[in-house]
Design a protein around this nucleic acid. Structure first.
Length: 155
DNA sequence: TGTTTTGGGGCTG
DNA sequence: CAGCCCCAAAACA
């Protein structure tokens, strides 16, 4: 089955199947595509992603070595403190870091690990906000589904 | 609904 | 280094 979209991680490309308004399952694209065999770390990530889909909670205990500017790392570190089921705004993050909402969105846009750095839990003050670098198209819809999966009530 | 301000990154020279 | 453009925002009229 073709995954609805691909989650980018430092370790592997993982397909995520989205159906009926929630994230229903994860499958490693490696099974169906020409990708190298999964390493132990890949399998661990896959297990944790599966667990996220079942339990709607974060189980990501891998240490991420993210490439980014010092500012981006500060923003990403702040994002990882947002628990599942909670959302915050670009403005609130900006206030904590003494910067501007615009700059926070810029750093979110460059987040390489969706889900593990939960940028989907940051919304605009006047709506959903963008996701995966896009403000239109399917990605904002996926953001919405991830939030619904975590039990967030959206207007 | 517009328009204006905004901070950081990436690019060019 | 400076100048310029791009943005997943926000405030305001």
């Amino acid at each position: 089955m073709q995954p609805a979209f691909t989650v980018r991680t430092p370790f592997a490309n993982l397909g995520v199947k989205v159906e009926q308004g929630c994230v229903a399952g994860i499958q490693a694209v490696a099974n169906s595509l020409d990708l190298p065999p999964l390493t132990e770390l890949d399998k661990k990530i896959t297990r944790q992603l599966n667990q996220y889909c079942k339990q709607q909670t974060d189980c990501f205990d891998v240490s991420l070595k993210l490439n980014g500017t010092p500012f981006q790392k500060k923003v990403w570190r702040e994002l990882r403190r947002i628990p599942p089921g909670k959302v915050t705004t670009y403005g609130a993050i900006a206030e904590k870091l003494h910067t501007s909402p615009r700059a926070v969105g810029n750093a979110c846009r460059r987040n390489p690990v969706l889900l593990m750095v939960p940028c989907h839990r940051v919304v605009s003050s006047s709506g959903l906000g963008g996701f995966a670098g896009k403000t239109r198209g399917k990605w904002p819809g996926i953001k919405r589904k991830l939030l619904q999966h975590e039990g967030v009530i959206l207007d």
